[in-house]
Design a protein around this nucleic acid. Sequence first.
DNA 1: CAGTATCCTACGTGATACTG
DNA 2: CAGTATCACGTAGGATACTG
Lengths: 160, 160
Amino acid sequence: MKRRDFDHLNCSLAQTLSVIGEHWTLLIIRDAFMGLRRFDDFQKDLGIARNVLSERLKRLVNEEVLEKTPGEKGFPEYHLTAKGLALQPILISMTHWGDKHRPNPKGRRLIFLDRKNRKPIQTMTVRAHDDRRLKPKDITVKRGPGHRSSGLDIPLSDLR
Amino acid sequence: MKRRDFDHLNCSLAQTLSVIGEHWTLLIIRDAFMGLRRFDDFQKDLGIARNVLSERLKRLVNEEVLEKTPGEKGFPEYHLTAKGLALQPILISMTHWGDKHRPNPKGRRLIFLDRKNRKPIQTMTVRAHDDRRLKPKDITVKRGPGHRSSGLDIPLSDLR
DNA sequence: CAGTATCCTACGTGATACTG
DNA sequence: CAGTATCACGTAGGATACTG
């Protein structure tokens, strides 16, 4: 009766979820992207219980998403590693989706900018090899060498 | 002592998480992208408990991510709506991250293809307005009209 | 400031049996 | 096949007090 993990699924999505799928985790990472570094800042900003935050941070350090350093003033600091920074497309995709499909009536909450010219970035889209934008139905899948069929043998049909 | 929701955060990411943040939810959606439509297929493929699946599907239908239709043979079917299809960049970003940062030693598990020419799609990247690819540190944020500072007033500092 | 340590409870989830 | 209904349980997570 344990909570099941997703390991049996052999799926990259499930792997990712095992790192960032828990409650709070993604919001902690968001805060790290926003420049927060210190324990109490995370805690106050999110209103998360201290023990939970502690555990999540440990886990993220373990997964090498965050790095814990002594920091300038002797206080510990949590910084995103390269692996953590690589989560940005996920965070931004999710933020864009929330903006569009669960909007705040007053308008966008946070706007991502190209730092160079301060123009808004594009909405995240899937791109073909030659840069064409692809819509959901323009995409198929095939099995790679690491594929192992889990329970059902999904026919890998396309969207219709 | 209720489990806290994220509403107090006024954050699009939190909004998105409130729809797809629960355990199993994203995997159900993944299955829908893979062409699964029927209750028992989801159940068998994921190994999820029936009551949980039932509840999640209801929720997703309620959120208009899935649509429940009578289906051809009289059996109910669950289809992705436009709102659901719009989740694809999230799913793909997450799959790519898992491929890269928690790889299967045997190679990629699933490969997304441009249906037109069956070439692999690009890895998801953030793009500037003029199509340049942006790295995490090339991006800043500003507050939009819908912004309301939550607990802490984050200085919105950039990555360093 | 940055945690650690307890305690407690609600809820998520698994297992399973039953209905139309 | 597509659910609904129960029950039992583990644990995630809240609250809070305490330490270095």
